[in-house]
Design a binder for these strands. Structure first.
Length: 181
DNA sequence: TAAGTGATCTCT
DNA sequence: GAGATCACTTAA
């Protein structure tokens, strides 16, 4: 198997769009408990939520108890419940004080942010935890290269309330998988 | 196409 | 405390 390395906070401490793009093709890894086996899937869909100006970003109205972690250091998870039933998994990006995060919307084989968290048993317990191997939820890079022409960039999903200016920003990254053809 | 679902936020 | 809102999924 190809050798892979665990991504640390330096990977996430960059611009939100850059991290969202770079996460495509990386492995999302999970070990739910000490006794359970770990497993991983390649990330194939992400969205950037970038800073206080971004009307679609939870942080654009300022810091609250829920989104506080987005203002903290990069390399942490921001997990919250949406529509009363779906957990959303986000990776905090950028420097301390700058609220940015990347929503992980899908992996190869698991499409949809709510289904992904269900498959990975992600819930409130993961909120604010570090993106490290010992936290049980982390990301690995095996130097697999996803070419630019395999990535579709488009408007984010489900954020019509933010207005066309923000909805139409190129903040959504989808890996057009070869297996789809 | 519409209902289900409950935490969170913004007003009283 | 009440009411609106919501980065979605599923079953028709």
């Amino acid at each position: 198997m190809r050798k892979s390395k665990v991504l640390d906070s330096s990977f996430f401490n960059r611009s939100t769009g850059e991290v969202a793009r770079e996460l495509i093709g990386k492995w999302l890894c999970r070990r739910a408990s000490e006794s359970s086996e770990s497993f991983r899937m390649r990330i194939c869909e992400t969205e950037a939520y970038d800073g206080p100006e971004d009307k679609a970003c939870h942080a654009h109205r300022g810091k609250t108890a829920r989104n506080e972690v987005m203002f903290g250091p990069a390399g942490h998870w921001y997990v919250y419940l949406c529509y009363g039933m779906h957990w959303m998994l986000n990776a905090v990006t950028g420097p301390v004080g700058y609220p940015g995060a990347v929503l992980i919307r899908g992996c190869c084989g698991v499409v949809g942010p709510g289904r992904l968290t269900k498959a990975f048993s992600v819930n409130r317990d993961c909120d604010r935890s570090e993106i490290t191997e010992w936290s049980g939820l982390w990301v690995e890079d095996d130097n697999f290269v996803v070419n630019c022409d395999e990535i579709v960039i488009g408007p984010r999903i489900g954020i019509g309330y933010a207005g066309p200016e923000w909805e139409n920003k190129p903040f959504r990254f989808v890996w057009k998988p070869p297996f789809e053809a």
